[in-house]
Simulated assay, not measured.
Amino acid sequence: MSHDDVLFETLLQPHYAATEARISALDRGSVVLVPQDTTSLNYTALQKSVDGLGPIGTTAEGAQGLHLHSSLAVTVQGLPLGFLDAQCWARDPEEFGKKAQRQALPIEQKESYRWIKSYRAVASVQRRNPQLTLVSMGDREADIYELFAEAAGTPSGPKLLIRAKHDRALQEEPARLFETIRAQPIAGYQIVKLPRQKDRPARAAKLAIRFAAVNLCPPQHKAQLPALAIWAVLAQEEGAPPGTEPVEWLLLTTLGVENFEHACEKVAWYTQRWGIEVFHRTLKSGCRIEDRQLGHSDRLEACLAIDMVVAWRIYYLVKPRWPLQFPPSVARSNSPS
């Protein structure tokens, strides 16, 4: 693992190529979902014997380890095809606590640039496979205006499906994003099977679906960026069990959402994002990557690249099917779609 040619990115190149081959073999017109997500790898117990780690918690002196950002290609039925991009790094403890200074930096010099870098890796595959539709997905952390601007600048590139975090201003609208979409009529209801989590049993959630086309204004400190025309889909749970926080997803997408069926489709696709969380758990609990004792972060990263392929193979063989199958079971409202 300490050989100069045994590198994280080098080791994953054959897997990227094999993943693209599996994607290219899909039927013309198929949709490939590519959720991306970040997880931290905790080596605090080993930090005295491992060099090159960085803070992964809220303080520079706290938990130490590495960060991993993965982009996993899956079919709309949930079959994991492999990775299209992965990034691993250690945060510089000298830069910890300088958030205000980092905000003034261009996106290319920020840690959040990882989302755009992964999107560009997916875009490369999309260019070589124009017969397919690739959709880059992310949770609230991926709600970055530059990412939407990147997609808007490449209309033939991958589409985006991102859960909203920021209540952005809208063009020619007095209300902001969240208020505007919540004011839309309910188009119908969708049933989503939610998997079990730590202290939450699995359940079927009844989601009220709203959608609308919106024009986002750039943040004030990014006024040089263009306004963006996208679609918003809001899924709000009704009748959640007592003491349980109701599900509420506001999804932003560059895909057209012209009717209720389109909106349900995007919600169903978003549930496939959970698969990358399953993969990360497999990597930690199955491959036990956090127990590796290799003396330096570079060696840990090289070993991580191998374990990622192993964990993907385990996940591929299991092929979980907890998200709903589309078309969903729905109870339509009387509102026009």
Rank of each mutant, 00 (worst) to 15 (best):
S136P: 06
V278C: 11
V233S: 10
S70C: 13
I276A: 03
I314S: 07
T39H: 03
F211Y: 14
Y270P: 04
E95P: 04
I186Y: 07
S337H: 13
L177V: 12
H280A: 07
G97M: 03
E245V: 08
T44P: 00
A213Y: 00
A142N: 10
K159F: 00
P323L: 05
L147Y: 07
A223W: 01
L26A: 07
I56P: 10
A202Y: 11
E111S: 11
A302D: 05
A202R: 07
A63F: 06
H15A: 15
R22D: 04
K206V: 11
G286P: 10
R22M: 04
V135C: 07
H67P: 05
C287W: 02
S49G: 03
G65V: 01
I107S: 06
W115S: 12
A305C: 10
L228H: 09
R102E: 15
H3K: 10
M137R: 04
V309W: 08
Q126H: 10
G239Y: 13
G295S: 05
P35G: 00
L304G: 02
E9C: 01
A121G: 09
Q101N: 11
R203K: 06
W274C: 11
A302T: 06
L324D: 08
T44Y: 02
G275Q: 13
P328M: 12
L134G: 07
P323I: 01
F96R: 05
P195W: 09
D307V: 02
R281E: 13
D291I: 04
L160M: 06
Q109H: 14
Q103A: 12
G78A: 10
G52W: 09
F326L: 14
P14M: 03
G239I: 14
I162Y: 09
K159R: 15
V31R: 13
L161I: 00
K266A: 11
L81G: 07
T244V: 15
G62Y: 13
V247H: 05
P174K: 13
R321W: 02
L46Q: 15
R281N: 13
L46F: 01
E248C: 04
L300F: 08
L46V: 01
R292M: 03
E258W: 02
P328W: 01
S24D: 10
L216M: 07
G138Y: 05
T133L: 14
E173Q: 15
S136N: 12
P155N: 01
T244S: 11
G97S: 04
S112L: 14
F279K: 03
G256D: 01
I209T: 00
L46M: 08
A17F: 01
G62N: 14
A204M: 06
Y113V: 05
G256T: 09
L161D: 00
Q272I: 02
A183K: 15
L294M: 08
H166Y: 03
V34I: 12
A212I: 04
Q293N: 13
S40G: 02
Q13L: 13
K48S: 13
R313G: 06
E261I: 00
P174D: 12
L68P: 10
S136R: 05
A63H: 09
L255R: 10
K319S: 08
M137D: 06
L252R: 05
T254Q: 00
P246V: 00
